[in-house]
């Protein structure tokens, strides 16, 4: 009974919120993560005049690295054409934290890279597993997401980025 009661209360609260929340889009949650040098960074500061791609990855995740390496080959053109910014959010913990910067630099990535070792940002965005990609419009609204990566997915992503950059809706 107790559990049912608590569940009902929760459902009520969330239900009310949900019906209101649907009117507006979710924004990027403001959570403390780390820069590659170990200093603090608040995700509320992720801003861009154009679209933003937030990509969750890890140094031990093969499809994540394939995706980000494939995008890296075209990233310069993407930025020139659409003003997009890619935020690569690593979920590596203590075991691999020190490998992030050497990997990123070794591969020559031009992304904004942060690390979420405690999983706070991951939880705040409801990410199950990596790779997980979010697309954010220039008003800071999260408008699209995608879980996993298959070869070629970057083309669909870029089509959406171009639409956003042109001010079109991607519903």
């Amino acid at each position: 009974m107790k559990i049912i009661k608590s569940l009902l209360i929760c459902a009520l609260l969330f239900g009310t919120s949900l019906s209101y929340a649907q009117n507006t889009k979710n924004k990027i949650p403001a959570v403390d993560v780390k820069k590659m040098d170990g200093s603090k960074f608040n995700t509320g500061e992720i801003k861009n005049d154009g679209p933003i791609i937030i990509n969750f990855w890890a140094t031990w995740c093969s499809p994540c690295k394939r995706e980000l390496n494939n995008i890296a080959e075209m990233y310069e053109d993407w930025v020139d054409e659409t003003g997009v910014k890619l935020v690569a959010m690593s979920i590596d913990d203590t075991r691999n934290f020190a490998k992030v910067a050497p990997y990123v630099n070794g591969k020559g990535w031009e992304y904004d890279v942060y690390i979420d070792p405690n999983g706070d940002f991951k939880r705040a965005l409801g990410v199950n597993n990596v790779p997980h990609t979010f697309l954010v419009d220039n008003k800071g609204n999260i408008v699209w997401q995608h879980n996993s990566y298959s070869e070629g997915d970057e083309y669909e992503l870029y089509e959406l980025v171009k639409k956003l950059a042109a001010g079109e809706s991607i519903e």
Partner: peptide, 10 residues
Amino acid sequence: ILSNGEVRGN
């Protein structure tokens, strides 16, 4: 106030 609320999950 309510419309500022955001629900997320998985």
